[in-house]
Design a protein around this nucleic acid. Sequence first.
RNA 1: GCGGGCGUGGCGGAAUUGGCAGACGCGCCAGACUUAGGAUCUGGUAGGGAAACCUGUGGGGGUUCGAGUCCCUUCGCCCGCACCA
Length: 880
Amino acid sequence: MKEYNPREIEPRLQKLWESTNLYTAAEDAAAHDGTATLKPKKYVLEMFPYPSGDIHMGHVRNYTIGDVIARYYKMRGFDVLHPMGWDAFGLPAENAAIKSNSHPAKWTYANIETQKASCKRMGFSYDWNRTVVACDAEYYRWGQWIFLQMWKQGLVERKNSPVNWCVECGTVLANEQVINGECWRCKSEVEKRELEQWYLKITDYADDLLNDLDKLVGWPERVKQMQANWIGRSEGAEVDFVLCDENGEVPEKPSASDTITVFTTRPDTLFGCSFFLLAPEYPGLFDLVAGSEYEQGVREVVAAAEKVSAVERAQGDREKHGAFTGRYMQNPINGDKVPVWVADYIVSDYGTGAVMAVPCGDQRDFEFARKYNLPIVPIILPEDDPLYPELAGVKERVRTTVDWAASFEAEGIMVQSGKYTGMVGGKHSEAVDAIIGDLEAAGKGKPAINFRLRDWLISRQRYWGNPIPAIYCDTCGLVPVPEADLPVVLPLDVDITKGETLAQCASFYECSCPVCGGKARRETDTMDTFTCSSWYFLRYTDPHNENAPFDSAKANRWLPVDQYIGGIEHAILHLLYSRFFVKVMRDLGIVDFDEPFENLLTQGMVKLNGETMSKSKGNTVAPEDMFAEYGADALRAFILFMAPPDKDLEWEEDGLAGISRFLNRVWRQVWDLKGLAGQDSLCTVGTTDTTNATDTAREAGSVEAAVIEKQAAMLRRERHRVVGKVIDDIERNNFNTALAAIMELSNTTGDYLRMASPELRSAHKDLSALDAEIAEVLVKLLAPIAPHWAEELWQTALGHSSSVHTQAWADFDPEQAKADEVELAVQLNGKVKAKIMVAADAAEETIREQALAAVALQIHDKTVVKTVVIPRRLVNIVIK
RNA sequence: GCGGGCGUGGCGGAAUUGGCAGACGCGCCAGACUUAGGAUCUGGUAGGGAAACCUGUGGGGGUUCGAGUCCCUUCGCCCGCACCA
């Protein structure tokens, strides 16, 4: 027998697999012209890494999960696509380059090599011929091409608006990249600035992105919920209010500037609107107060609001501030004159930045009304409210105050609401529809849907990114770079360590206008790195295509991704953007599917002492140290075994050592099963062993044949049961229990080997056949998890010249997994009192009799009220 | 506040549809083999009790022959969103 030595076998087998192209994805030309029958496919994908140094344990976990799935389906007869690449544009490369006085490209490509080497050392089964590197011109040129297609579709917009500016990173950020007022990457505070920037109109797809979440049955509920929240669809109405004078008179022909539209989800509460609010940033706010005695107060509120940082603003309940503008609006439902206030809790970029305030039905308005002593008109009441008897059925307004502790936001009966009095009011109530209908008929409002989702700001004032293919011409204006001129190559002779950017690189930005040929200036902003990751999974299907981003037939064959694996931190960002890209491409007719990722697994973090591993905290465990000591296979198995994949995993080196022991043990068992263990045979019978368990057997000289046959029968059953369980578990991503089941098979194998000596087993045909079968099953079951271990055993102990990874998976016969005798628990009033052995197919009556006999003593003189027999499980006898 | 998830031994975690709670592993205890053991092998290991037994899945209540699982209620923790009108 050969010792298990991962340090020796792993690098050797990795080289062998590479030289035999074991992991080249099946790419038969015939597959695409319909002349050949295709094998079913599986596209297994892990989120590609950003190359910042070597891979860490989080990557190891991510890629191990993907690798097991990919290898498993390959053995199950699928064509498997399992690629890897690098999300290689981005700011860390620039920062690192400045720090080390180098170039981002140098740093990036060096890290890619490091990570690639580590991935190979982990034995991941990637098809390296399909590697996509986002900063290679052959990739990013197609990102530019997609941008141009979107432009043609009217999905690209350059507009001036308030944007998030990260001072630290020196660039703007998309809404999705601001987390609690901080930059997603550097965590520094984000400012608001008014700038002209490039946007992708993801809001055009808001409904589609929301509705199609229902199609994603293979996604975690949590992620779908997060996306739904982010898209934030609200149904309601737009209602037009008109400026009026002190007497409540409106101009005969109100101009556009006299009208302010609000969005509300509760038009049913319009009768309760007792004041009107504008955001501090509301355009035209100062025009309303210019020169008046109220201007000072309004300006103070606006100035104070500006001082509040986004971080502060994001933090919970803040006291509300406001000021009266001295102006009034007319409530369109009842002609009421309501005062206009500026209030700092109104956000300018949601709805219209103007709000009808209904203090009786909205807690924020309620608080504001209390603070500034504004009327709180009750218009929707629960029937058990003390006010209800007084106001029930009252149409005209008789009360403008309440002594409530809080607003009433639930469903109730409408009062003081004119013709709507007596109707049920509340979210999505009959009153909502009635009032919207009437407003629309009067030309004062209409149904409306509002989204929280904003357009995607994609321009970045940074060097290390994909150049936006646009040109400014004094004559022709803004013009797209013609497709034939792609790629717009990112120049490498920019020295960012000297503070240079593309805007300083004349050889880059000086160009001629593609329309008129005159002197023009190239756009010097680059695209958000998330544009690169929004379609890389499509490029993998056709990575070397020089005429298109990918061949549609190839993408349509492989996509959608059957299993996508990555961190929860991308729940909104990357996963939303990718869905958007795919929907755009579908509408362009380039792909024929709606969603990129059919099944999503968000893996948990790897933690050390309860804390996230991070370089800054200095509490990392380097994968290379671990595979150097225990081998990649043990590391892979450990990371799968210690927790379900979606839960956080606590790093535990003892656990790794335990798994390493397990691999060693099965290694020896496989050799022993093949009769090649020699003096390492696990058999303890007939040897010098003196343990109690085998004493009798030793004295008798050997274990009785009947006992061995029984153990062998159990092993045969267990073999089928475990194969079935492992199939189930892997297909449901329960890798921890799959491994536990394999351990059970190994334990049963150990019991068997202990009893039956190699000589005895080889003398019996049935037993030698069983030995060979069990050895093969153990190796195959562990092949996806511990690929080197399995390959070495397959080729040495089992003597094959082929690779175990191209073999068919172990067969599974549910019939053979069934025992002919089963143990049933016998319960008295739900508590287990005895166990009985019965034939697996025993009749209910037989079972009942046997059960009653087993607990006859305990039943004694009590009366049996009822007997419940659950075949193959238990018998419950109810006694009194 | 809204939404999602979770709570099981000393620890990580098992328990598809309600059916023997604690699979599997770590750790620990005991033993075997050893010059030695952080190697290997064997046995034990939810708690209480000498035992028969009793108690146990955050707490309380309910449905059921039977509840970790379903329902109500309550406590605690984690995550996401958040003056979103």
